[in-house]
Design a protein around this nucleic acid. Structure first.
Lengths: 353, 353
DNA sequence: CTGAAAGCGCTAACAG
DNA sequence: CTGTTAGCGCTTTCAG
């Protein structure tokens, strides 16, 4: 029996009606068995289940989504999945989504604001329950306005826009924000370096116009000011958040001949590049130069020496994003959650004995 | 009972009918403007487009998918997105999918065969154009049979099953396979180590029953045999493909007191753990012990010393998976593509001068 | 060129 | 408990 190929095995999938016919019931009864919410006689249910098995039937998710209004899907919009930082947030999103019975759509934008907008539009078509946009925002009015527009547009079709790791759009905009304390983390790390005696700390990895970067720089500056110091603008280097740009920027810093005893990298990836460039130049870490990162991704433990960094609760960010989007009552008022960050001390800032 | 919309619920999204009414045309005309395939008078089209803009209308992807039969979606099933190896394949999938106008659904299974099956079922409901399953397969008859069943089931609803990095299911099974030369890569790497004079090479990271692992072990063995040698079974250690298990296994290896001058790790992640354990034990790399990995993920360049490894064309695997699934004529016959691998020499196996 | 009408597969409302 | 009847929003004949 199991071996027998259906003689009328068509290329088409079977439908509720096929199942109903085979079980000798109506389509609604099949639907009720599927849903499990309505009372169905045990014997009927058994016959229906048998027919389902024999026909190898599965519901058509689109037909279901069309009738009801939710399609049980969460969309995740991110720059680039290969970035470990984003990947870990993605894991949190995926896990929570699947725990809540949702599927997860993945879209990447490669840092292109245009693509972000296009992707959000597509998600609107999909009627995703939530559209989760991850990563720092461009501090640009046009961009901000577009996102605000989408927040409303998504809201209109019953989707929720969730911003992870970027500031709120403003009052009255229907969006949930899950952020982490960028400024505080940078402040704490800078304080750590300053209190270890460093007075010429370079900051490698500023990205002008990116919210995350601005906040970190701001914590960096505040820590200095608290001691009556002012960061040397010549020691603040721009660089995208990648390993290779961190390497480049550090080489330029070294070439400039400026003095410094510590480097605070914009992210751990940048720090990996910094360390590479430093080692290449024969500088010992942490003896000649202390190095610190931001994010606390796994690579922070694999670089040598192990990297002191600011921990960001990546998975929890992802999980919270889904949770809040799906149960809005949890955060009734502001819809703005900020998770804490903390310094993780490792060898890259430790003075060797 | 009156049809009242919930006060809490947002206003309903506008539909073709709303647009049609506003533009003073019929729904079909709106549809034709949207599709762009049928002739529509320029003036009519303009009016429709205006109405669309004013209503901020977007199609309902589900309604569209219900009518037509394809929903323009590609599903990506993977153990864990945070693994860099998978993440890079994911990037290839995502890029190619989006280049082909497809959305990408992401599902993770956390190494649980049960979840793989559940996820594939869900994808069948979604009528995804392609379901791409990534990662080694369990060499288990029941598992194999279930996958074969799904290949047929997916085929019946018009989806294509694609296996990435695992062997074909067999002749006549409607599935596309994109694999890479696991055995050859392991063979080449082992040969490299042997010809550098190593005679006691440990293999850390065998996973019994996992196809990838078996193939690598097989290349490892073949390289030995070519020189009339036999690998010492006591030097082959089981370990899942993670950093921490690699670390554990290496500690056990060291504790066992067995002699070895090189370690070939099952993956780069495992190698990171190996290196950590080795350094902790005071063994110098590569002087005391040479270390090699597999996969060539970015972390291979960040560990110290930089890791010699086997390059696997991750993004291309992902891209090819989507390409082949969507254009089957490209690979008319066997539907089995094998990409090459090659050794990448770095410092972890280089004898210092 | 455009409109009317018929579903796609499913679920919910309303009788029996 | 179960069958019948309507649609969900869109595309697609089939007429006009």
């Amino acid at each position: 029996m199991a071996k027998k190929t259906e003689p009328e095995a068509s290329r088409d999938a079977s439908t509720v009606r096929d199942v109903a016919a085979r079980a000798g019931v109506s389509a609604s009864t099949v639907s009720r068995v599927l849903g499990g919410t309505y009372p169905v006689a045990a014997s009927t249910r058994a016959r229906v289940l048998k027919a389902i098995r024999e026909l190898d039937y599965v519901v058509n998710a689109h037909a279901r989504a069309l009738g009801g209004s939710t399609n049980k899907t969460v969309a995740f919009v991110v720059d680039d999945v290969t970035g470990p930082f984003y990947a870990h947030i993605a894991r949190g999103v995926e896990e929570q989504a699947s725990a809540e019975g949702r599927l997860c759509m993945l879209c990447t934008t490669h840092g292109d604001p245009q693509r972000v907008l296009a992707v959000v539009e597509t998600m609107r078509e999909q009627r995703a329950d939530a559209v989760i946009v991850v990563g720092g925002a461009w501090e640009d009015k046009a961009y901000h306005d577009r996102m605000t527009h989408f927040a409303h547009a998504l809201d209109r079709v019953g989707s929720r826009l969730v911003l992870v790791g970027r500031p709120p759009l403003g009052l009255g905009v229907p969006a949930t924000v899950v952020d982490y304390d960028n400024e505080g983390g940078a402040f704490a790390m800078t304080t750590h370096l300053l209190s270890a005696g460093h007075r010429a700390i370079a900051y490698v990895g500023r990205m002008p116009g990116l919210s995350t970067s601005s906040q970190r720089i701001s914590g960096f500056t505040r820590a200095h000011e608290l001691l009556g110091l002012t960061p040397d603008p010549g020691l603040i280097l721009d660089s995208p958040f990648t390993r290779s740009y961190g390497y480049q920027a550090t080489r330029e810093l070294l070439a400039s001949g400026r003095e410094f005893t510590a480097i605070f990298a914009g992210t751990d990836m940048v720090a990996a590049g910094v360390i590479h460039a430093l080692r290449e130049a024969g500088r010992r870490i942490p003896d000649d130069v202390a190095v610190a990162g931001y994010d606390d991704i796994p690579v922070a433990r694999d670089v040598y020496p192990a990297l002191t960094t600011v921990n960001v609760p990546q998975e929890e960010l992802g999980r919270a994003a889904v949770r809040l989007a799906l149960h809005r009552e949890e955060l009734p008022d502001s819809q703005h959650l900020v998770l804490g960050t903390h310094v993780v001390l490792r060898d890259s800032t430790r003075r060797s004995a």
